[in-house]
Amino acid sequence: KKIKIDLKKGPEGLGFTVVTRDSSIHGPGPIFVKNILPKGAAIKDGRLQSGDRILEVNGRDVTGRTQEELVAMLRSTKQGETASLVIAR
């Protein structure tokens, strides 16, 4: 099931960490939400869960991207702006 979640970045950030699983010589594996932090946009919104697979960030497919690339995409969202995620659960 795909779910679109918009998180408005506040002073505590987006409020979640990510982890890559099953990376191989063929490229990075899928990226999942690792933890929801006690402060930040994710816990206020309440929909994002540990174990959700991140498919898109701000309309860009993240398949084949590294964890570092995904984190850079999320960090490029400025405070007060919205990060738009599509996740699979």
Score class of each variant (00 low, 15 high):
G64N: 08
G46D: 04
T63S: 06
R60H: 10
A72Y: 06
G51W: 13
D61P: 10
K4W: 07
E69R: 05
D22G: 04
S50Y: 11
G46H: 12
H26E: 15
K9Q: 15
I54V: 11
E56F: 10
V33P: 01
K8G: 09
R60C: 08
R53K: 13
S50V: 13
Q67N: 14
I43W: 04
G13W: 01
S23P: 13
F32A: 12
V86R: 10
L7W: 01
V18Y: 05
G46A: 08
K44E: 07
N58T: 03
R89Y: 01
Q79E: 12
N58R: 04
K34A: 12
T66N: 07
G64D: 11
L85H: 01
M73V: 07
F16L: 11
Q49E: 12
L48W: 00
K44W: 06
R75E: 14
D45G: 07
S24I: 04
P28C: 11
D45C: 09
I36C: 03
A41G: 08
T17I: 07
K39I: 08
D45V: 01
I31Q: 05
D45N: 07
V71P: 03
G29C: 09
R47L: 08
L7S: 02
R53F: 07
E69G: 08
S24G: 06
Q79I: 04
E81T: 14
H26V: 14
K4V: 12
P28A: 13
A83R: 04
R89F: 00
V19G: 15
T63G: 06
R89P: 14
G15F: 00
R60A: 10
I43Y: 05
L14I: 10
A88V: 05
L85M: 10
A88W: 12
L14K: 00
G15Y: 00
T66A: 07
G51D: 08
I5D: 00
G59W: 02
I36K: 01
L70D: 02
L37M: 06
V71M: 14
L14Q: 01
D61I: 13
G80R: 05
K8L: 05
K8T: 11
A41H: 03
L85C: 04
Q67H: 15
K34L: 09
R65I: 12
K39P: 02
E69Y: 06
T77R: 09
F32Y: 09
G64S: 09
L55I: 08
G40E: 02
K44N: 13
G64Q: 09
A83L: 11
K44D: 05
T20R: 09
Q79D: 09
G13T: 03
S23W: 06
L85S: 02
K44P: 02
A72S: 12
G51T: 03
N58V: 01
T82Q: 14
K39V: 11
S23H: 12
D22Y: 03
G80W: 06
F32H: 09
A88Y: 15
R47W: 05
L48D: 01
K4F: 15
L85G: 02
D6K: 11
V18D: 01
E12C: 00
G29S: 07
G29Y: 07
S24H: 03
G13E: 08
K78A: 08
P30C: 03
G15S: 00
R89S: 04
V57A: 05
T17Y: 02
G51M: 13
L85K: 01
K39H: 10
D6G: 12
T82N: 15
L74M: 12
G29L: 08
E81L: 09
G10F: 07
K34T: 13
T20I: 05
T20Q: 11
A41N: 09
L74C: 07
G80H: 06
V86C: 13
R89I: 00
I43D: 14
T66V: 03
K44S: 12
G29V: 11
H26R: 12
S84E: 14
G46T: 09
V86A: 11
D6Q: 13
I87Q: 06
I54C: 02
L55S: 04
V18T: 15
R47D: 05
P38S: 12
T63A: 05
V57P: 01
I3V: 04
L70G: 05
V62K: 02
R89L: 00
L74H: 01
L48A: 01
R47I: 04
L74K: 03
G10Y: 08
I3M: 08
T66S: 09
I54K: 00
N58S: 06
I5S: 00
E69F: 08
E69H: 04
V18F: 15
L70W: 03
H26Y: 08
P28F: 12
G15A: 00
R65G: 06
A83Q: 12
D52W: 00
P30R: 09
